[in-house]
């Protein structure tokens, strides 16, 4: 019984922390910091997918959200400007 409770505790902690990261990524003005916040969110989402017993989704989600998407966004930001204007 308590062993099941451990799994629920890990899932609850991961989902709460990802909510904080998503909120900060929405309100941030510096776009590079917003990219880093979305990387934090992807780390916690991969833990949630792992706890839902779907390692194939984790294998697809990690390269897309942790590697390719920040790389593309950083290339885009370096071509344009870094701070968001009003």
């Amino acid at each position: 019984m308590s062993l099941d409770l451990l799994i629920y505790a890990v899932g609850a902690v991961a989902s709460l922390m990802s909510v904080v990261a998503v909120y900060l990524a929405l309100v941030e003005r510096d776009l590079v910091k917003a990219v880093i916040y979305s990387a934090i969110q992807s780390v916690f989402y991969s833990l949630l997918f792992y706890l839902f017993m779907s390692p194939d989704i984790v294998l697809v989600y990690l390269p897309v959200a942790g590697g390719v998407l920040p790389a593309l966004l950083l290339v885009l930001i370096s071509k344009t400007e870094r701070f968001e204007r009003e």
Partner: peptide
Amino acid sequence: IFFKEPILIVTAIPLALWIYALDIYVAKY
């Protein structure tokens, strides 16, 4: 190990590799 499912371990190797890639991207930027 806790779930007794050995197939779950393959997710750790891409994690280590792609986070190194994120480091290199930010340093390059």
